[in-house]
Amino acid sequence: MDVLVGMGKYLFLIISWTFFSTGFSQIQEPKSIVLDDLLTLMAKNDDTIRVFNFWATWCAPCIKEWPYFQKLSENSSDKKLKLWMISLDDARKLKSKVVPFLQKHQYTASVLLLNETRPNVFIDAIEPAWLGAIPATLIIYKGKRCFAEKEFHSQAELNDWIENCTNFKN
C-alpha cells in the first residue's frame, strides 16, 4: 500500500512537470537596473529601432496596452526592432508583483525594472519632453527620438505610430 502511495506521488510529480513544462513556461525574473544602465541602452546608435515602454503593474492603462507591446515583441524577432518594457514598480515588489504579473499573462517581452527613487532626476535624463505620467513610450532610431506620453488603444495605433516615427526621409 505504502509503495502504491509512493508511486502515486511520483506519478503526480511527473504529470505536473509535464503540464507545466508544456503549457505554462516559467518567466525569467526581470533584471533590476539603474539609470546609467538604461541610458547606456538608449545611447547605442545603429540601425535598430529601439522602443522603450514605461509601465508599472499598478498602472491600469499600462496593463491595457501591454498586449500590443507583447505582440510587437513577438513580431520583431528579426532584430530590426528591439523592445524593452521598463517597469517603474517598486524594486522591492519585483518578486511579489512584477514576476507574477508576467507569469499570469505569459508575457515574454523583454522587461527591466528601473530601480531609481528620484523621479525629478531620472525623468529628464530619459526624456526631457516627459512630464512624468505613465504609460509613456520612447523610440530611438538613427539618433532621432519619438515620444508618446499616452496609452495606445489598439495594435494598429501602436504600429502606425512606430511606422510614422521611423519613416524618416533621409
Binding site: C59, P61, L88, P119, N120, I123, D124, W130, L131, G132, A133, I134, P135, E149, K150, E151
Partner: peptide, 9 residues
C-alpha cells in the same frame, strides 16, 4: 518646475 512620476489623469 520639477517632475514626478504619477498616474495619468
Amino acid at each position: 518646475v520639477t517632475k514626478a512620476i504619477g498616474c495619468s489623469i
